[in-house]
Design a protein around this nucleic acid. Structure first.
Lengths: 209, 209
DNA sequence: GTCTATAGGCCGATAGAC
DNA sequence: GTCTATCGGCCTATAGAC
């Protein structure tokens, strides 16, 4: 088995029909069941192609897996409009950002991706790196800038914006997130999510407000 | 495949020699490689027994896995002597507790158990429950009591001790823990661990001191 | 490029001797 | 209880026709 499989840098565009079918089927299956529980037979059947066709496009199961999960690690939490420099109420802004992030984190599909990445990161080191780079680190870098901006504007007081940003992200993961990660019912309710975000904002502002 | 496999409540004592060999070999293998990557042939060979003997003791691979990982989820972080009621310096006490917890969390073997549990929790729901109950929840319950005690003594000011305890645990997992969970080098250094604990204690005390 | 068919191996689990 | 030997199935990957 060859584990030196690169994770592609950017998503492909306007793929041929069959290739798109294979990627979509494999993405759903790998995210739902993980690496070991998905066979190339099942991927091929779900995509409506033969196994030989699958192997014509992807050199191995490893390559297919790394391609797909690496792509699935990308998030949409870094769009600039989520982090306005001028805010009237910093608590409300933090609550909005935190709510967006935590709802993203506890989304069942995102949790499934997280489970797959964390469990295969030992065998596919580039997977953990791609996840970190495109997910948590990308968000953190954007959020660090926002915290620094608010500190310069006198609305926050974070000596070390990077530390403050990491701690805010950590506070969002308190309580319900671990339970959701471990697939434990009940699923987080909207009320729980809001309460967790509000508590995180409260503690963050006592420390850095 | 039968997924309704119970996780045992207590560790067995004075096991027959071969049974102990099987349990030890299987524990190491499952923790290191996960469920899918370990075969019963390999377990039997590592334990120095035949596969038939393995199946004489454990009804299926599922049963063996649930037995072993459920047992491995137990932690030793709840011993009463770690949480003295009378403390001179609450910051120092928090730092001691936090250091113990975070060093426990980033220990390579514990991280490996966490990876296995989180990835198999979908297929083995009782595994996630056993992990939560014997690990994070057991520690949290003990720590909640300590926070409540310190609040009554006037050394902390936590209106909601459970929330405060959850947030302290979350703050400990900020920064280095996610990186370590994803198997990303470099491994956390002692200095990083201490800095993370100190930062968690600082933020916690600003909010609840 | 895409198919059918299959090679070759490892899997979980069991039969039967002792 | 423990062993050797093996079953039937599914796995990754490929050969060869079109």
């Amino acid at each position: 088995m060859n584990h030196e499989v690169a994770v592609p840098e950017a998503p492909a565009e306007s793929l041929p029909r069959k290739r798109r079918q294979m990627l979509e089927a494999a993405t759903a299956l790998f995210i739902e069941r993980g690496y070991g529980a998905v066979s190339m037979d099942v991927v091929a059947r779900a995509a409506g192609v033969s196994k030989a066709t699958l192997y014509a496009h992807f050199a191995s199961k490893d390559a297919l897996f790394a391609t797909i999960i690496g792509e699935a690690c990308r998030s949409n939490l870094v769009a600039a409009e989520f982090y306005p420099a001028d805010v009237e109420d910093v608590a409300a802004a933090l609550t909005a950002i935190g709510g967006r992030v935590l709802r993203f984190l506890v989304d069942p599909q995102r949790l499934a991706i997280f489970r797959v990445v964390i469990s295969e990161s030992v065998r596919f080191p580039e997977l953990g790196a791609a996840f970190m780079e495109n997910g948590p680190a990308a968000f953190r870098d954007r959020f660090v800038d926002w915290v620094a901006t608010q500190t310069r504007a006198g609305r926050l007081n974070a000596e070390d914006p990077k530390l403050a940003a990491e701690q805010f992200m950590a506070l969002l993961r308190s309580g319900i997130y671990l339970r959701a990660s471990l697939s434990l019912p009940p699923a987080p309710t909207e009320a729980e999510i809001d309460a967790t975000v509000n508590a995180a904002v409260g503690t963050f502002l006592k420390a850095f407000g």
